[in-house]
Design a protein around this nucleic acid. Structure first.
Length: 271
DNA sequence: CTTTAAACCTGCTGGC
DNA sequence: TGCCAGCAGGTTTAAA
């Protein structure tokens, strides 16, 4: 369950289902988490919040659950007692009297006493959430101009969770296209106007995707999407190799950067 | 310090 | 039908 917009959509749906509810059943599918079933049974879910692609679920019993879905994790919202038809392995199940949330396949799950969760190595390392409503273009601009980010190639920078958390591979391609930028440039190479355009696109594109309820899943990933990614965000370049650019008609190219596929319009994003 | 490669998590697809 | 390689929107680790 991939990038920031999809994770935030999942968090919204999960929160709507169980925040404020008392848990009547808690199940953990990983041996190391078994002991927390008793700790959390009967507790109330206080909040569910995204931090980049990580999710925090706080319980009034003084515990906080950290989870990261990586590529495969799937959240589902349903009813208590039901057992969805899936071959995936159930990792977490939280049931209240009238709702249930279930996490499948993800293996990066841990429980922390209260706010000690903020000491989690990943949370320590990541930058501001690109979808945080408090994040301003000016903040992003300052970040772009600061070390060590200003000297990194845009292709790498836009995947770096330490720069902006919640960015991912499709957002990288879409942001670079919207800002009309060559992925091999670095912030330090760019004149002020282009930097401002990049800062703006870094906020606008993820927000646009979030408001559109995320991306429409590819066939391959379709089975993974339940709570999130059922939306209407349309790619300009991602997954469009060989198809004409919507702006200039030039054929979109698939290239590789930082070990990941990237799509560019060679005309709009040239030089 | 930067860049690259491989490993790992898991599930689905396509080819033979 | 069955098996296996390949791929995926992520992250970590180690090597170069």
């Amino acid at each position: 369950m991939p990038e920031g917009p999809e994770i935030r959509r999942a968090a919204d749906a999960l929160a709507g289902a169980v925040v404020g509810k008392r848990l009547q059943r808690v199940f953990f599918g990983l041996p190391k988490l078994k002991r927390y079933e008793r700790q959390l049974d009967g507790s109330t879910v206080e909040s569910i919040t995204p931090h980049g692609k990580a999710l925090l679920i706080r319980f009034d019993a003084g515990w906080t659950m950290y989870s990261h879905n990586q590529l495969y994790g799937v959240w589902m919202v349903g009813k208590p007692g039901e057992r969805p038809a899936t071959s995936r392995s159930l990792r977490v199940e939280l049931e209240s009297a009238d709702a249930a949330i279930r996490l499948y396949s993800a293996s990066d799950i841990s429980l922390w006493p209260g706010e000690e969760v903020l000491q989690h190595p990943f949370l320590q390392r990541i930058g501001p959430d690109v979808l945080d409503p408090a994040l301003r273009a000016q903040d992003v601009l300052v970040r772009l101009k600061s070390a060590p980010f200003q000297t990194k190639r845009l292709s790498a920078l836009l995947l770096d969770q330490a720069f902006l958390a919640g960015m991912g591979n499709y957002l990288r391609a879409e942001v670079l296209f919207v800002a009309r930028l060559d992925p091999d440039l670095r912030p330090a190479d760019l004149p002020a106007a282009r930097l401002r355009a990049l800062a703006k696109a870094l906020l606008a594109v993820p927000q646009h995707s979030y408001r559109a309820r995320g991306i429409e899943p590819s066939r391959r990933m379709k089975a993974a999407y339940t709570v999130s990614g059922t939306g209407a965000f349309r790619f300009q370049v991602f997954d469009r190799a060989g198809e004409p650019c919507f702006e200039c008609g030039t054929l979109i190219q698939r290239v590789e950067r930082d070990g990941r596929r990237l799509y560019v319009c060679p005309h709009c994003q040239g030089g």
